[in-house]
Design a protein around this nucleic acid. Sequence first.
DNA 1: CTATATTGAACAATATAATGGTCAAAATAT
DNA 2: ATATTTTGACCATTATATTGTTCAATATAG
Lengths: 88, 88
Amino acid sequence: MFDSVEIKEVKNEIGLLVKAIRKQRGFSQIQLAKALDVSRTSIQNLELGKNFTIDTLLKVLKEMDLLDQLNSEVLQAKAHVMNAKSMY
Amino acid sequence: MFDSVEIKEVKNEIGLLVKAIRKQRGFSQIQLAKALDVSRTSIQNLELGKNFTIDTLLKVLKEMDLLDQLNSEVLQAKAHVMNAKSMY
DNA sequence: CTATATTGAACAATATAATGGTCAAAATAT
DNA sequence: ATATTTTGACCATTATATTGTTCAATATAG
């Protein structure tokens, strides 16, 4: 019923998003990697939808000014859960 | 200017969200771990704000019916980027 | 209350992400 | 057109996430 999308597809989309923002800001993979103090390989793995750690992703999101937004959505989801009556 | 929140704090909040949903659904860490075919240690690391992989997180979000929502927001963010004129 | 289940913590072993490097293809610049 | 930059791919090494386990503390159930 829920979650028809596959994990692999979500990772691909995250990678495409990061790549799109990086391109728009005129950064190369190497420039972004240096700015975040991670390797180019890590950026590449993220952009190509391989597995990666939450630290790598959050460093990228922070650089792209998306970290606050993500945090807000997490807080909102949490509040929503706290509010809802359990259906289980 | 942007992104005043710290990476560590976001990881903590993600962990608290996962824990809140798991509790609400009446799952123990072991039950959730078995359902996702990961170890309880991985669930524990995620809930306690340690580092973890995107695979572990997405497995959890899928189980909690949040994967489609995340995917939609990624797509929306991507569309937003594609649309916007570059400021760089 | 006592018994049971759950959780946080720590550990060694294994699997794998991160790093730093090279190279050819593709994209971009000149 | 050629020169330059960037990227995807691959590789060996290192760092670390994952696994499986035990144990004490805490929470929950009886």
